[in-house]
Design a protein around this nucleic acid. Structure first.
Lengths: 202, 202
DNA sequence: GTCTATAGGCAGATAGAC
DNA sequence: GTCTATCTGCCTATAGAC
């Protein structure tokens, strides 16, 4: 599962703890002291692995992007048709939700204007990756008839990303994962082939 | 427009500045020093108006909720049919977007776990208000035929809120308001009556 | 790689003069 | 209502011993 690797070395364990803190409280919402306490070492030792917090942030985002990318590869390998893969993609977010966390990148997007430039760029790259993957998926689903045609694949991809990040935000504020499901389930159903849709008459 | 009242008294001017900072950097992303600098008075003077930052936060959220509620009343009075009112609602968010800000409550939702309890409760109340207003609107639109029937009004309301907050988050990270439009426009079109939709076959 | 010790800065907050 | 002055605490970060 995303964000739960073995965590052998100290650097890796630091990133694991930092990830949980960042997904819960935000990148500006935790300190080296929090990590040190959770890990059982002193603050100063953390600087040996990540000299500055900006370094830590870049490493965090980099690892998250790689892990996410691997998860997408897994879906591509085992996922079945486009609709099933879409559900697999949504499941990635559900797994984060049930642990009372936000998507790291949704959280960082809120903090965007306070982030160091390299993190801002990495953040956009993450969203671009996801948008590209989703766009490709929707396009293939429309072509082979698993997904409803009509809307542009790229617009569907952006809508999905927005709805996912927004639904997590809201659901967590109510400490109610059902809100997440209530939003996503109808959206998925609506994308499925077999639903038809005529353009609005004027 | 939301967040741009006359700002007569000092307390009101403080809230105005704090709102801009909170919508841009987050509630934890600004300090009394930032407000003092923008307003041209000393930090200590701010405490006369808002003894603690938690007090400031509560006042901020309270005023935002009231202003938003007034904006909804305006839409109710002048809005036309349900679809037009829906567009009016979306416009409230667009106005925030074009100023490179987030919805205050979307931002606070990200910071949820670090907020004082009273702010957490006020935040949920804000979302509940919006959900209620939207649900009522969708229900009436479905009944008089302006909006497509099928999905439950409450689910539509939640989906809209999620998509709006999420789309703002993403669009701001790309400093590209068009991303916001690209998400919302198809969603609105899809809700409009004249679009039909059959349940998925299995 | 981890420790102690400490620097330098900024946070929220208070006391008391004007 | 605003000011100066100050407090306390936490933050990121560094130096140098072990």
């Amino acid at each position: 599962m995303l964000g739960t690797r073995p965590a052998n070395g100290t650097a890796s364990r630091i990133l694991e703890i930092a990830l949980g803190l960042a997904q819960t409280r935000g990148f500006n919402g935790f300190s080296y002291a929090d990590i040190a306490a959770a890990l059982g070492i002193r603050k100063a030792s953390l600087h040996h692995h990540f000299p500055t917090k900006a370094d830590l942030g870049r490493a965090l985002l980099s690892r998250y992007t790689v892990d996410f990318s691997k998860a997408l590869d897994d879906i591509d390998r085992t996922g079945g048709d486009a609709y099933a893969r879409l559900k697999g993609y949504v499941r990635l977010y559900e797994e984060v939700m049930v642990r009372d966390r936000l998507c790291l990148c949704g959280m960082l997007a809120a903090e965007y204007s306070t982030l160091p430039k390299p993190m801002q760029q990495a953040l956009r790259a993450f969203f671009d990756d996801n948008e590209r993957w989703l766009t490709k998926l929707v396009k293939s689903g429309q072509q082979n008839g698993t997904l409803r045609t009509g809307p542009l694949p790229r617009d569907v991809a952006r809508m999905l990303l927005s709805a996912l990040e927004g639904a997590m935000l809201l659901a967590r504020s109510f400490e109610d994962p059902d809100r997440f499901e209530a939003v996503l389930q109808p959206i998925l159903a609506d994308l499925r082939s077999g639903n038809t849709r005529k353009a609005a008459r004027h």
